[in-house]
């Protein structure tokens, strides 16, 4: 089976690059074809990349505390560009300070993200969920 395309990047003007490299390596080894846009990626770039590469999931990172502002509106923009069914995952240090994770999660789910992760999530678990979510999207399409 062909590896599935996914787009990866750190959103906004966030330049924390260490986690991004780890995620690229990890998801490549987990059997995905990762299109890594690196750091300081705009919403527009995530979407353009997803279209050209036919990715069915976008993995957004935000580490520097401005995730809320940077991530808002991505879902709407995807729909506008015809990416109706694309999976949106977001993770990192999504907000400033010590807000309980459940609250953070709720906020990002409301924005239209499919799954939300904190900095200490298990990447094996994420990969599992991603495989499952992609499969169920495919079944829905058929």
């Amino acid at each position: 089976m062909r590896p599935k395309n996914i787009v990866l990047g750190v959103i906004g003007f966030d330049c924390h690059s260490v986690g991004n490299k780890i995620l690229e390596t990890f998801f490549t080894e987990a059997g995905f074809k990762v299109h890594n846009l690196g750091v300081m990626v705009s919403q527009e770039e995530f979407i353009n990349a997803a279209i050209e590469t036919n990715s069915k999931a976008i993995m957004v990172s935000s580490l520097y505390g401005h995730g809320e502002i940077d991530c808002a509106g991505l879902r709407e923009r995807c729909i506008e560009k015809g990416l109706d069914d694309i999976l949106l995952y977001v993770g990192g240090n999504l907000v400033v300070g010590k807000t309980p994770f459940a609250q953070v999660e709720e906020k990002f789910l409301k924005m239209g993200y499919d799954r939300v992760f904190g900095p200490d999530c298990s990447l094996e678990h994420v990969a599992e969920l991603l495989h499952q979510d992609l499969l169920s999207r495919e079944e829905k399409e058929d």
Binding site: R2, N5, K33, H35, I51, E52, T53, N54, S55
Partner: peptide
């Protein structure tokens, strides 16, 4: 043209 190799075919 359009699509990366292995990318968008539609």
């Amino acid at each position: 043209c359009g699509g990366t190799d292995g990318g968008n075919e539609r």
